[in-house]
């Protein structure tokens, strides 16, 4: 099998340095590092992988070459399947799909088939209504749904079972609405949910904050709740779910993991490197560009976090009516 390296322009300069250094000893890593983005270029996973690559290289945290490979397909399945057959020099980006794919029956893989290395960043979920909507807070919305679930059209996309969908399911459940009765209109395309909201074709949407933040600032839509623990800068007028009496804190996280059976030395290496990465200014800048919040957890914390998340998602998938 031929390994093919994607040559990022920035990598060229570093290639020379790393060659000098690679003779030093037997310590991990001894080969170039490959970061798998289990999606096409341009999406969230791809951006995460390329941000990792860029920050690790620009700050000279890792001496070996780093390449990003795109292995799209099956909601991460193709790339993760590939990772499970590699050695410790390959990493892959992940998100909650790692957990939900299995619960939704689209994958045999679970997080236990890999070595969690870190949770990196998160976006927050939001609920938004049209600017001229008479609904002003999430409690009003939920009450309306409770009175007549079919009367409130909720836009979501691109597929049921994602965080946009399940975060709203959790909120509805906490409010005492049967999530199976929610009237979701599922929009397949990337921005279709937002179009539907701006055009008044739905009564509310549940989506990641970044999708609607600028529209909110421009006064085109009204965000009525965010899933973060506290209010966020830039949009301090938007209350959290918790403030409004609905105990929901819902991160839409991204992280990075390695193949199964990594040694303690290898895990420690990445804990150190990624720990340093999240402290860099460049990383902070990238987070800001993407509207992500830092959500760093080291390998041990991430393993624990995955266990908690699996339990949460099991319940949500079941309650949403998508359970197998």
């Amino acid at each position: 099998m031929k390994k093919i390296w994607l040559l990022a322009a920035s990598a060229l300069a570093l290639a020379a340095c790393s060659e000098e250094a690679s003779g030093e000893g037997e310590t991990f890593p001894t080969e170039p590092i490959e970061i798998v983005a289990p999606a096409s270029p341009g999406g969230g996973w791809d951006l995460t992988a390329r941000s990792l690559q860029k920050v690790l290289e620009d700050n000279e945290l890792v001496e070996e070459d780093i390449t990003v490979t795109n292995k799209p397909g099956g909601g991460g399945e193709v790339g993760w399947q590939y990772l499970s057959e590699q050695d410790a020099h390959t990493l892959a980006v992940n998100s909650s799909l790692l957990i939900t794919n299995n619960l939704l029956g689209t994958s045999e893989l679970t997080y236990e088939d890999f070595t969690p290395l870190a949770t990196l960043a998160t976006e927050w979920q939001s609920v938004a209504v049209p600017a001229d909507s008479e609904i002003d807070d999430v409690e009003e919305l939920m009450q309306k749904i409770k009175d007549d679930p079919s009367a409130v059209k909720i836009g979501v996309g691109p597929a049921l079972g994602n965080d946009d969908h399940l975060s709203f399911v959790q909120a509805a459940r906490e409010f005492g609405v049967d999530p199976k009765k929610l009237n979701f209109l599922v929009y397949e395309g990337g921005g279709d949910v937002l179009t539907a909201l701006l055009g008044g074709h739905v009564d509310a949407v549940t989506t990641s904050l970044s999708e609607v933040k600028d529209q909110h600032l421009a006064g085109d839509v009204k965000i009525i709740a965010i899933s973060s623990p506290e209010r966020l800068p830039d949009i301090e007028d938007v209350p959290t779910y918790v403030e409004q009496g609905i105990p929901v804190e819902f991160p839409h996280w991204r992280g990075v993991m390695g193949p199964p059976d990594m040694t303690e030395e290898e895990i420690a290496y990445w804990d150190e490197k990624i720990g340093a990465l999240v402290e860099t200014e460049q990383w902070a800048k990238l987070l800001e560009n993407n509207d992500w919040d830092s959500f760093y957890k080291d390998s041990a914390e991430t393993a624990e976090f995955f266990a908690e998340q699996t339990e949460l998602y099991e319940g949500l998938v079941e309650d949403s009516g998508l359970g197998q």
Partner: peptide
Amino acid sequence: FSELLGVSLP
């Protein structure tokens, strides 16, 4: 495909 377009071929 593999070098210029960055498609990962086996």
